[in-house]
Amino acid sequence: MDYTRQTAYSDPREFTALLAELPSDVPSLAAAIRNLVVHYRASEIAFSDERLREIDSRWVDRLLAHDQERFPGSLLAPRPEQDRIAGCCRDFTLLSVAALRVHGVPARSRVGFADYLEPGFHSDHVITEWWDGTRWHAVDVEFDPEWGMPVDPLDVPLGPGGLRPASQVWTAYRRGDIDVNKCGVGGAENPLRGAWFVRNYVLNEIAHRYGDELLLWDTFGVQSLELDGDLTLIDEVAALVTAADAGDASAEQRLEHRYRNDPRLHPGPTVTSYSPRTEEAAELVLAR
């Protein structure tokens, strides 16, 4: 896959020129993205129902349209925190991926579980990867390096202590090496955790890898709200992700072929979405 090309989700469309004005160096770009997006939940801002609708914006141009309604013009002008786009880690990431692609830099999103957000818990998270011509670098554009995180947001390891890709977490669970009930959405009372949740995130991980950068609460294929179905299928694709990450070009080709040709692994024309805004299931058409 050519990671310099926009996907249906990352394409800024009429806002391409605005994204092109953002800096291309990753630290400066990350700061610019933080000026555009605020986490709808972690910020503890009491957003109105109308503002919360922004969290269900699948496409970069829709995200930027929300911003431009309030701040027409340059994306570099400061925005008050409460007036930034209401989103989540996926939106910080997708905007940065879109901007890097505008600059011709290969970039993609990585879906997994962060060890650095909540002590003793593996929190669901999405971060950015960019290619320097030799290797991939993982960065968490949501967090300022000056905030004193347990990891350097500009150099996040893909593994223990950093972001564990969902494929790694699934394999560790199947080996009995991780408490899967400590993997999911953070917060002591949140039920969105466990083996079914990790299984779903393995499929989210490969969907994002191959250009279907869906909302984290969209479900498709063999995803469900319980642990069911053919788990060996998840074992196989998780193993292929791990091999591809290690540089196995054959594994990368086989993984992409399986993703694109097996309807159990990729979204069809619709998804079932469980937006935290409504907490109700809704079948939604992906076509624009």
Score class of each variant (00 low, 15 high):
L94Q: 11
F113W: 00
D115T: 02
H66M: 11
G148Y: 01
A114N: 08
P106N: 08
V105Y: 14
P145Q: 10
E146F: 03
H137C: 00
L192P: 00
V185E: 04
V111M: 09
G148R: 09
L94G: 01
D124E: 07
Y116V: 06
E54P: 02
F92D: 03
D155C: 07
F121N: 01
K182P: 02
P106Y: 05
L192T: 05
E69F: 09
L95T: 03
R175C: 11
R84G: 14
F47N: 09
F71M: 03
E118V: 12
D61H: 15
G120Y: 11
K182G: 09
W170I: 10
G120M: 06
V97W: 07
E129S: 00
R53W: 13
D177C: 00
E50F: 07
V60P: 07
L158H: 10
A98T: 11
E189L: 13
D140T: 00
V180E: 11
R90G: 13
V126G: 00
D83G: 01
L158C: 07
A107L: 11
V111S: 02
H137M: 03
K182E: 12
D179T: 08
R51K: 15
S57Y: 14
P78T: 04
D49S: 15
A65E: 13
P165I: 11
F121A: 01
F92S: 01
G176T: 07
E50C: 01
A98E: 02
L52E: 14
G176P: 12
I85K: 00
L163D: 04
R53V: 08
S74D: 04
R108W: 06
G159A: 13
L158P: 05
A98K: 10
W131P: 01
V169Q: 09
D177A: 15
R164F: 05
L192N: 12
Q68W: 08
G104R: 02
L52V: 13
C88T: 07
H125T: 02
G73C: 10
I55L: 13
I85E: 02
E50A: 15
E189D: 15
G133R: 11
V97N: 02
S96H: 03
V141P: 01
L154A: 10
A188T: 11
L158W: 11
F71D: 00
S123E: 14
R174Y: 14
F113I: 04
Q168C: 06
G162I: 07
E118P: 00
P157Y: 14
T171F: 01
V139Q: 07
L154N: 13
D91G: 04
F121M: 06
H66V: 14
A99T: 15
H125F: 00
R135N: 03
C89L: 03
V60Y: 08
F71C: 06
W136I: 09
G73A: 05
R79H: 13
G133V: 09
D83E: 15
G120C: 04
L94V: 14
C89D: 06
R108Y: 05
R164L: 15
P153L: 08
V185M: 11
W147N: 14
W147F: 04
P191T: 06
L94T: 12
V141H: 00
D144V: 10
L163N: 10
A77K: 14
A172N: 10
A114I: 06
P191S: 05
E142C: 11
A172H: 02
